[in-house]
Design a protein around this nucleic acid. Structure first.
Lengths: 172, 172
DNA sequence: GGCCACTTGTCATAATATAACATTTCCGCT
DNA sequence: AGCGGAAATGTTATATTATGACAAGTGGCC
């Protein structure tokens, strides 16, 4: 999980998650949305939790819990694993972040508030993670579930491959 | 696994993976298939590897690496983690087993040899795991990949929920 | 203030996974 | 049959990921 040669460019416009966009703005928007959601639901959007979300939003890649812990510690919060795991658990439980099982790592939700059945594309070279929306209970799996009587409560879809930037570096 | 509806006898009938089938037979068949595949490909189907596959086939649920290690040790093989991890790596690499990322655990392949783009249904109550075939990257994910230029190399699909037996136990 | 639920920080430990290396086994070759 | 190299095995040691338990702090509410 090296932080590798990740492209970091001029202030606000970064080619991340396979597309360019205004990063500072996407952070502000997402944090504001989370805050609003917590207010509505009576949840406590505490400093650690806000910090954790901001840290995740800095990257469009998955961050391990211990990487998160390092950054939270650097920001003056507690320094033991549960600090990171609890903040991440809160973010995941409330749809502000997702766990990437394949990487044992966490990524900010690209679409908080939207109906959630996300699918992820994970670059095996640079570890960037992009989120796509996938319709719930899709094709073959939904059919198999109905056929056997299995009740689906949640589905994980994670594709591993090469993002456009890394594909270009790798081959012709 | 189930190669069609098969007549079954009382003693060998186990209600597993959400369906009844002849378990002893499904083990023999799968091991023979693996052996044949290895012979064809010049791979070494060594005793540990065979034992690991048999152990996985005993269950239609995912087994953690250390659970596997315990059983391999009991069978007279080495007693250190790499023993289990290497056998499992071999089985996964050759399509005889799959890793269930959600559980950090491994399950025998229900359909070895078939074109592989498996999807799993994981019961959160009893941890049974059933494998369905899913068409490779169709639908929303494939579309997103094409749109962004992401090259999918492999996809993991895991649904969590309740198997029929546990659903019945849980609530009418 | 006193109560309560929740959150935070910590220590301790569990569970999962890999690195590195000596030894043995197997296969192809002569 | 004997040799050489690649692969597999078993081991020690350690890295990485994750959780249990408990004391102390925080904030809402009567």
């Amino acid at each position: 999980m090296t932080s590798g040669p990740r492209p970091v460019r001029a202030q606000q416009l970064d080619p991340i998650a396979f597309e360019s966009h205004d990063h500072a703005d996407c952070i502000k928007t997402a944090v504001a949305a989370a805050e609003a959601h917590c207010t509505r639901k009576g949840l406590r959007f505490t400093p650690v939790r806000r910090a954790a979300l901001e840290i995740l939003l800095q990257e469009h890649r998955a961050l391990g819990a211990y990487e998160m812990l390092d950054r939270l510690r650097a920001a003056g919060f507690g320094s033991q694993p549960p600090v990171a795991y609890r903040a991440l658990e809160f973010l995941v439980a409330n749809g502000f972040a997702h766990k990437i099982e394949r990487l044992n790592a966490f990524v900010a939700c690209a679409n908080p508030g939207a109906s959630h059945s996300p699918a992820f594309m994970i670059c095996r070279a640079c570890e960037a993670v992009a989120e796509a929306q996938s319709p719930p209970s899709r094709g073959a799996l939904g059919a198999a579930a109905r056929a056997t009587g299995f009740q689906i409560e949640g589905t994980m879809v994670e594709a591993v491959g090469l993002c456009p930037a890394c594909a270009e570096k790798a081959g012709p």
